[in-house]
Structures are given as structure tokens and as C-alpha cells.
């Protein structure tokens, strides 16, 4: 199987339960089906920084889909994750969108607290994930079936701050889920698209900042082409080159030292010694 091409910069993975929910996002974000991915329908944009997987309903499917995507993009710990779906609420208006401030479930003992983002202009709410559809609408919380499984799984491979959930109210006490017509799903998502897009942009921005922290330092390629470093040496080289870059030394280390007369050990030593002589310029 050919792996989809994710970018090494900021990324966001969207996990959604149903294809009907996903259609408006696929259209708005110009995502294309990745035909090589068979286990779950996967859609990506052409820059490889947004992916959307349709997991199917419920905790088990959601967990399986997140694990699947995580496996394919394991070299991007800076990727952000967003679960978007529908939920019931005792009193909220149909079509209103909430972001999760706390996620609890009937099947997990631990609650999950996403780090709350500033200036979203969206109301926050606790999400209660249940294993089966329920006629109950507990007061003040959004009831769904995936959020808890999503968060508990994703937190194994992403920082808590990069995991978020958005829920759109599809049913309430007055209009219970038994009356819900799934054909109206795309409309619910369409009407919230501007806020969803802003949320995704914000996550991408955050993920980008994280990705930049781990970008390979300048001259790394040049040097690793010249010598083959062991894993420990490679780690040391990256650290030293980062110092080199941070201290704003403009020239390449290869032009600063006569590299032809040095082996890789001597080169690393020379580089470190040189860096140690440089006083901090504030």
C-alpha cells in the first residue's frame, strides 16, 4: 500500500463518524479521496496538511480509525486532531455548535480536558459519550458516541493541547433523535462551516508552530551526505547545528573548518569547541 503524503509541517487530522457529515467539509476544504487507503475512507487536501477520515459510528470504529491514521502519520507528533460530529442536548438549539471543554463517558473512568483555545467565539460544553443511543438528555451536556474514545486514543500519540472536539446539536428534548432525518446532516455542517474552518486554521497554526520546533537544522543534509553518523552522533550533530543556527553564524560549518582534514568525530568535537567560544549576543 502506498502511504498518503502528509506534509512535515503543521497538520490536522479530522475524524468524523458519517460520510453525510463529512461531505460538506470535503467540499469546503477541497479534499480528495485517497484511493490507496482501503480500511477507512480517507480524504486529503493537495498540500497534505489536512486529512479527514470517516470512521463509522461509535467508540470502537472511532478508536480504530484514529489508530489507523496515527499509524500512517507517526512521524508527525505535532499533528493536531479534531473530532467533529453531532450530539444531542437537552435544551440547546438544533444546529448550534459547541467545542468540548470536558469529555466524560459512560465507559471510561477518566475525563479528558482539552486545552481551551482563546477567542473562538463558540460556546463550550461538556460532552458525555455514551455506548448506545439513549433517550436521556442530561442537563447541560452534549451527548455523543465518539468523543471520549477519540480523545482517549489520540492522547497516546499527540499532546493534549492538540486534541479538540466540535459538536453540532442534531437533536434535543423537543426534537429527539428518533425523529432525526439524517438527510439534514449536510445542512447542519454547512451552516457551521465558517466556524469549523476557523477552528481548523487555528489548529493548523498551532501544529505549524510545533512542527517548526523540530525542523532539521540548516547544513544537516549537507553534513550527513558527507559523513555517515551513528544515531548518537546524529543526535549530537543536530543539537550542535541548532546551536550554530541559533547563534546566527551565517556561514556553513564546512566552510568555517577545513572539513577534509577531519573525520566525523573530530568534526563534531571541533564544532562544539567553536560554539563554546561564542558569547551570547542578545
Amino acid at each position: 500500500m502506498t502511504r498518503p503524503q502528509f506534509t512535515s509541517r503543521g497538520q490536522v487530522h479530522l475524524v468524523m463518524a458519517l460520510s453525510l457529515e463529512a461531505q460538506p467539509l470535503i467540499k469546503a476544504l477541497k479534499l480528495k479521496r485517497d484511493r490507496n487507503t482501503k480500511a477507512f475512507p480517507l480524504y486529503m487536501n493537495n498540500t497534505g496538511n489536512i486529512s479527514l477520515v470517516v470512521s463509522g459510528k461509535g467508540a470502537t470504529n472511532c478508536a480504530a480509525a484514529t489508530n489507523y491514521i496515527a499509524g500512517m502519520s507517526s512521524d508527525a507528533p505535532h499533528a493536531a486532531w479534531l473530532n467533529i460530529g453531532v450530539a444531542g442536548h437537552a435544551s440547546a438549539t438544533l444546529g448550534e455548535m459547541f467545542f468540548a471543554t470536558k469529555i466524560e463517558s459512560t465507559y471510561e473512568t477518566n475525563s479528558f480536558h482539552p486545552t481551551i483555545r482563546r477567542n473562538l467565539g463558540l460556546p463550550g460544553a461538556t460532552i458525555l459519550s455514551v455506548s448506545n443511543p439513549t433517550p436521556e438528555y442530561p442537563s447541560g451536556v452534549c451527548v455523543d458516541m465518539e468523543a471520549a474514545a477519540f480523545c482517549q486514543n489520540v492522547k497516546r500519540f499527540a499532546a493534549t493541547e492538540l486534541i479538540q472536539c466540535l459538536k453540532i446539536i442534531s437533536d434535543n428534548q423537543e426534537k429527539p433523535w428518533t425523529d432525526f432525518d439524517t438527510k439534514t446532516l449536510p445542512t447542519l455542517f454547512d451552516q457551521n462551516m465558517p466556524n469549523i474552518a476557523t477552528f481548523i486554521e487555528e489548529l493548523l497554526h498551532l501544529s505549524n508552530i510545533e512542527a517548526e520546533q523540530n525542523v532539521l537544522p540548516g547544513y544537516y543534509q549537507e553534513l550527513t551526505q558527507m559523513w555517515k553518523f551513528s544515531q548518537t552522533q546524529d543526535h549530537q550533530l543536530q543539537k550542535l547545528l541548532r546551536r550554530w543556527e541559533t547563534l546566527e553564524i551565517n556561514d556553513s560549518p564546512l566552510r568555517t573548518f577545513d572539513a577534509t582534514s577531519l573525520n566525523r568525530n573530530a568534526f563534531l568535537e571541533t564544532l562544539e569547541k567553536h560554539l563554546d567560544t561564542i558569547q551570547l549576543k542578545l
Binding site: R242, T246, L247, L275, I278, L282
Partner: peptide, 13 residues
């Protein structure tokens, strides 16, 4: 946390 921070690039041992 801050791999590109100047303070950590210079003089500390």
C-alpha cells in the same frame, strides 16, 4: 521545549 533559544545555545555546560 525551546530548541531555538539563544540562551541554551551559548556558554552553558
Amino acid at each position: 521545549l525551546y530548541p531555538q533559544e539563544k540562551l541554551f545555545a551559548s556558554g552553558l555546560k
